[in-house]
Amino acid sequence: MSLALTNYFPDSTSIPFIKARFAAFGFSVLMILASIAAFFSMGLNFGIDFTGGVTLEVRTEAEIDAARIDEMRGVLNNLGLGAIELQGLSELTEGSECYGNHCALIRVQPQEGEGLEAEVAQQEANLAVQAALTELYPDIEYRSVQVLGPKVSGELVQAGIMSIVTALVLMLVYIWFRFEWQYSVGAVVALIHDVIITIGMFSVTQLEFNLSTIAAILTIVGYSMNDTVVVYDRIREKIRKFKKKSLDEVLNLAINKTLSRTILTSLTTLVALFSLWLLGGAALQGFAFAMIFGIVVGTYSSIFVAAPILMLTNVKREASEA
């Protein structure tokens, strides 16, 4: 059949991935160091989920142009609520309520206070902003309002960190259970590699880091693990089959045998995610972007990190039953 992709893909590749491992390790270490440096120097642009405060999305019948943004900024800055971010939302989808420039996003920084007072202060800030804006534009509409106190946002930070750590530990245990510990170590090193680089990307781009980012990171962990397991599964099979071949030959063979699958699955997932990124609206854009980035990194790491690490962890060559 002429339609088959076999025609576009070489039948059986024999790319010497393992030979490139030192270059790949160097590249990965560089990326990780850059990510850590970015994290500590630039930090992350945390969303309201993790900082607390107030965010509002508003809409008015008249277009929200630069003059209106300035007008709103002027009124809101007089409220004494600290720094207020205002940003017009331009919407290209016809039929959406925001089509044209009718919507804006307002972010009020978290208000100070002790204990429950701080919680109440956020609520009051919200009421003050709404009162001022409604006075300015009586037809204003609040499309979404989020008010988070320091307690809840603090807990969300903890839960976010906890969930990533828990997922990593569970993955380690699962792989340990299904394979030997040498594989487990390799898989988790690859995962940590993915997580650090994804967070580094968020630091460099200063994209908003929120709850859905955590969801994206966890999914990336699951996906990257998925990729790694497929490669490992094949490595284990080949190790048993070709006892005479050297380890790097076996690893290379396994990676090449699974290569077309790895690429195809990444492509279908990326196709779906691009649809989400381009069409899913602002709320899902950050998530989609994180996922797209993570899938690329995750695919890279299962080939260039997870597999070559087995050269270092001294994987057993005898047939061992898992």
């Binding site: 999305e57 809409r59 989808t93 039929g95 959406s96 309520e97 925001c98 919680e119 609520q123 919200n126 509409e141 609040y142 499309r143 979404s144 309002v145 989020q146 008010v147 988070l148 106190g149 307690k151 809840v152 196709v271 779906a272 995610l273 691009f274 649809s275 989400l276 381009l278 069409l279 899913g280 609206g281 709320a283 899902l284």
Partner: peptide, 25 residues
């Protein structure tokens, strides 16, 4: 300690966009 509210307009927009993204994907 936490308040999140969404108006019907934004909800409908999200449904529309989500549906389009699902169908195209």
């Amino acid at each position: 300690v936490e308040q999140r509210s969404v108006g019907p307009g934004l909800g409908q927009d999200s449904i529309n966009k989500g549906t389009i993204a699902v169908v195209i994907g």
